[in-house]
């Protein structure tokens, strides 16, 4: 199947499609934490790097099979998400943002000094096991599971915490426990995405997972529309394509990228798709008007 695809799709486009898939997985993880549960995390790349390094080291130095490395990377990232989540998730909004930034920076500095990870030079020669079919199969599975989760009791509780934590608690929601749960699940996806990335890129360095990478992922979640799965997917697609399309403007690329972020926020402050959910579409089909939302926080 993969052989067939690489025969018919130009390597350049294939590469972009792969990166889109991996970014969707990463962004859906962050969407659970920030978009759905409303806990501002600005260190998602840190958890991604844990997954990337763990799985790469396992594959390269322990000879572990690819799937096991991938799973182990995701689990270790989830474990750290759980660990950092317990004491910090009781912090209010922007304090949490700072802690996640700080944690990701500590991880980055750790890998900069980590002998088995090749220090600042990074790791190269990671087996390129990540294939197109694998990435997109995982994307589809994760989207389905995500959609099911968000329309379930637990998913509703996540949204409720974002919307009004006190009222959520008065409804019997253990907000601390659920925030840690969202953080752990989101970190799991970050680790999984990191493992896929490492086994696709062939080589990883600590600076691949610096603050800007976390910001890029956050942009995907916010740009598409907070808390919405279609929004997050759209955001991931656009923000993976955008830098490619901006190649024509060469060294002005980041200038445009920065300006576009500002312009998009001015004209679509709640993201491109707002909080599009199934019942909005149902209502539109019934010909009734659905109000625009404005976030309360």
């Amino acid at each position: 199947m993969d052989a067939l695809i690489s025969q018919y799709i130009d390597p350049y486009y294939l590469r972009i499609l792969m990166l889109i898939g991996i970014n969707i997985i990463l962004a859906l993880g962050l969407n659970l934490i920030t978009g759905v549960t409303g806990q501002l995390s600005m260190g998602h790349a840190g958890f991604m790097s844990i997954g990337a390094y763990t799985s790469a080291i396992l594959s390269m130095q322990m000879g572990s099979p690819f799937f096991l490395s991938l799973l182990a990377g995701a689990m270790v990232a989830a474990f750290f998400g759980f660990l950092i989540g317990i004491p910090t998730l009781r912090l209010e909004g922007d304090y949490l943002a700072m802690v996640t930034i700080g944690f990701a920076e500590i991880i980055r500095v750790f890998f900069l000094n980590f002998e088995p990870g090749g220090k600042a030079v990074g790791l190269s020669g990671i087996p390129q096991n990540t294939t197109f079919v694998l990435v997109w199969t995982l994307v589809i599975i994760i989207i389905i599971l995500n959609a099911k989760l968000l329309s379930s009791r637990i998913g509703r509780a996540f949204y409720a915490i974002r919307e009004n934590e006190i009222a959520a608690e008065a409804s019997g929601i253990n907000s601390t426990r659920l925030k840690v749960l969202a953080f752990t699940a989101g970190s799991f996806l970050a680790g999984l995405g990191g493992g896929l990335y490492a086994h696709y890129m062939y080589f990883i360095r600590p600076q691949d997972f610096a603050f800007m990478k976390s910001i890029e992922l956050l942009n995907m979640v916010v740009l598409g529309g907070m808390g919405s799965i279609p929004g997050t997917i759209l955001g991931s697609v656009i923000l993976t394509l955008l830098p490619e399309m901006l190649r024509i403007v060469a060294e002005y690329r980041l200038l445009f990228y920065g300006a576009l972020l500002v312009i998009l926020m001015i004209f679509r402050p709640n993201g491109l798709l707002g909080d599009v959910r199934v019942y909005d579409i149902k209502k539109k089909l019934q010909g009734k008007k659905v109000g625009l939302w404005q976030s309360s926080n």
Binding site: N219, L254, G258, L261, M265, I266, P269, N270, N297
Partner: peptide, 23 residues
């Protein structure tokens, strides 16, 4: 953005400015 967007939109806009100015 003031008064019609979530605080997070403000943060993203700030990040946009930051990227713009450093570039």
């Amino acid at each position: 953005l003031r008064g019609r967007a979530s605080r997070l939109s403000g943060i993203i806009s700030a990040i946009g400015v930051s990227i713009f100015l450093s570039t």
